[in-house]
Structure formats: C-alpha cells, structure tokens
C-alpha cells in the first residue's frame, strides 16, 4: 500500500435534474424501438446480400406478400379459422379445468384420486397426441379444438388446485363459521382466492393452445395459419411462411394484452 494523500477540496454539489423521460416512458419507447431496429438491420442486411434472401427475405418483400394475402382475403380466412379453434378450445379445456382444479383444491378425496392421473398424463408432449386426436375426432374441427383444449387444460387445472391450496386457511374457517354452503365456499372463497394463480395458468394455457393449433393445422387441416405456413413450405413461398409466423406472433401479443385486461377486471383487489 502506498501512502495515501488526502487532498482537501470543497465538497462538490452533484447536479441532478429531473430526467428527460421517466423510467416507464423510456421502457415503453424501447419496446417499440428495439423490434423496429431489428427489422431495419434485417432489411439492410438483405439488400446488401449479407444474408441469404432465399431463407431470410427482406422485411419489405414479406410486407408485399402480406398485402397480397390481405387483398385476396386468404390471410383473414386463415386467421379467423385459427382464432375460432383457439377460442372454442380454450373454453372446452379451460372451463372443465377450472371446475375440476378448484374442486380438487377443496376436496382432499378428489385430489387423491385425480392428482396421479394428471401427474401421469401431464408430461406427455401434447403434440404427440395429435395422431390419436385425428384418429378419434377425424380431420374436421373437433380434432383441432381438442388439441387446444388439451393444451389449455393442464396448466389451468394445476394452477387452480395450487391456487386453492394456497388460500390462507383462515378464510375457509370464516366460510365455515358463517355457514357458507359448498357452492358458496366455491364461489365466494375458492374461486376469487385462487384467481391470481389461475390467471397465470390461463396465460400458460393460451400460449400452449396457440402452439398446438399451429401444429394441428399443419397436419390435418385445409385452413388456418398453421395450414398456411405448411402449404408455404410445400410451394417454397418463404415470404408467406414469414407472414404466417408474424401473424401468430401478433395474435400472441394481443392475447397477452387482453389477458392483462381480463386480470384487471377479475382481480380488482390487486390493483393499486
């Protein structure tokens, strides 16, 4: 250690002015700037031949294909088909999962019976059930809806059970002390008490449903975004493939926003 020299200087005043943008505003701007920046780099790289445009066509040419598909009505028809399957699948999987999950959380007996079944079937990759679904439900709509339902079912049932088990026992005591009926315990305590955790399950489930609908449409469908992507591969229309991917990404993004909104309505006590 060398000798330390102490220099006495007048204490400096640190200048602090209010930041130009608030933290939040800056984050919001970045959320728009960063994907746009990526697209810009992509476009430049494609134009200057830095990337192989057979696999990575320029965003501008993907945009052109997008407009074509919009004009022909093809894109909308496929998007609508996928969204409809997703919607019915979410209901068909989500509602039974919600009821069963909460009932399992409330009833130890039911939990003992059903939990092993769920534990055993949950690890099966959902996409590997597709051939079976096609066999049982045929090539029509029910097989697609079934696939989405399967994807939504597991996260929702597991989270609903976890959510109910996580409810402070004192609230169940209150329910018993105030003579809440079985149905009232379900409606006024278990369901709202577990709702924050259930919403996490719904998010996961909808994400899983989106994955599965794309896969299911690639194999056994004549419409939908998955079908559109798959037929683009068959005709080597790479731009169309990207349009399909882009639209699925947008759907995922919009669904996230909608679910956030839904959570604000369903879980008002968490709002600050």
């Amino acid at each position: 250690m060398s000798t330390t020299t102490t220099t006495t200087t007048a204490p400096k005043l640190v200048k602090r002015s209010a930041p130009l943008f608030t933290e939040k505003a800056r984050e919001r701007v970045m959320a728009i700037v960063s994907p746009l920046g990526l697209l810009l780099i992509w476009e430049i790289a494609a134009r200057f031949g830095l990337i192989d445009t057979r696999f990575f066509p320029a965003p501008s040419s993907i945009g052109g294909t997008f407009m074509e598909l919009v004009r022909s009505g093809e894109l909308w028809a496929n998007t609508a088909a996928s969204l409809q399957r997703l919607f019915w699948g979410c209901l068909a999987g989500g509602i039974p999962a919600l009821l069963l999950g909460i009932a399992m959380g409330l009833s130890r007996g039911l939990r003992v019976i059903v939990e092993p079944l769920i534990a055993a079937t949950y690890p099966i990759p959902k996409s590997s059930i597709l051939p079976l679904a096609l066999l049982v439900f045929g090539l029509g709509e029910p097989s697609k809806i079934f696939m989405v339902a399967i994807g939504v079912f597991f996260p929702v049932v597991i989270n609903a059970t976890t959510g109910v088990l996580g409810i402070d026992k004192i609230f169940l005591d209150v329910g018993h002390n105030f003579h809440a009926s079985r149905w009232s315990m379900f409606r006024t305590i278990a369901l709202p008490g577990a709702m924050p955790v259930i919403m996490t399950g719904v998010r996961l489930g909808v994400g899983m449903g989106l994955v599965l609908i794309a896969i299911a449409e690639m194999v056994g469908a004549k419409s939908g975004l998955g079908y559109m992507i798959w037929s683009a591969w068959e005709t080597f229309s790479v731009e169309q493939m990207y349009v399909g991917l882009f639209v699925i990404a947008i759907i995922g993004f919009v669904l996230t926003l909608l679910l956030n909104e839904l959570e604000r309505v369903l879980v008002p006590w968490r709002r600050s």
Partner: peptide, 14 residues
C-alpha cells in the same frame, strides 16, 4: 355464533 378471528380474516377480494 360468529367469530372475530385473530389476524387478518376479512376477504382481500371483497
């Protein structure tokens, strides 16, 4: 009977 519990027992969601 009705009970006033020890600690927080009112429902946060109501």
């Amino acid at each position: 009977n009705s009970m006033v519990f020890q600690g927080d027992s009112i429902f946060p969601w109501m």
